[in-house]
Amino acid sequence: MIIDRTHARWCYFVLIFTGLLALSYLIYVHTSMVPPTGGTILGLIYGILAFLIMAFVSLLGARKKVPAWRIGRATTWLKGHLWLSLLLIPLLLFHSGFKSGGPLTVVIWMIFAIVMASGLLGIILQQMLPRLMTEQVRMETIYDQIDHVLQQVRYETDIQITQLVGPLGVELIVPEGATAAKIKEGIPQPGSEQLKKFYLDRVRPSLDPAVPVDATFNSATKINTFFEEARLVLPPNFHATLDTLRDVMEECRQLERQKTLHHWLHGWLFCHVPLSVLLMVLTLIHIVTALWY
């Protein structure tokens, strides 16, 4: 989510609320000469508020499971998730009186720190990566379809080359859900063998969806250079084919790039979500333990 002017109200709210919390904390410290802890009324209020906020921010995941429910716009939920989570920092600090407490609370503090850090990382990534993906991956497709598209690209390229140079001598893998095309094998022309060898040895391995793109093809400049050099080696009648192969390779590179960026864009959630759940569980244990004893 891009942090823009639409977040201003949330930001002011958090700042003002933090100010009020700090004021109440300072007044308490000034009047009673000791900081509040979980056992004091004010400390307990801080704790209850923190728990309610934790419960609310945890519900974001549940809200996503019912996208059709009209229980507030998803964007409002996410803004609430981001900004109210920040309030947890002063609330928990004031609740604990700036002390780490026992082993359980130490663990809670550590997990809280990781969850907050991963969340902040998520915000930073979501600020940057969508724009980066838009700029760098002009041939973007739906993430789940990438492998299928790559299979399709390889199959179509195989057919195209077969039509030019005759049988490739490798198994042409028909993409899932597609039907095998009837291939009209071309009559080998001068230089066909050269093109075939070039395709099979240098290009085709990088078209395999299961294999990451070769370092030779990991930038548009490198791809251009590679195919410019190939033009010097292969006869002119195959130059148009080289242009096609260059475009194909560029598409594969972009889709690979999309995969990478997508993993970064969503990968942090694998840390953030489970630890948030764990944090919630530990917090509940903390509450029960605190109330019990």
């Binding site: 019912v66 996208p67 969508p130 993906m133 997508h262």
Partner: peptide, 30 residues
Amino acid sequence: LSKCTRCDACTEACAATHDGVTRLVREGLR
């Protein structure tokens, strides 16, 4: 696209709203 994280919440919401059949595909012209 500078804001979209490609989370597909839009298509999931469309499907959830229309008996599991989405009428929206997150692909098109740029």
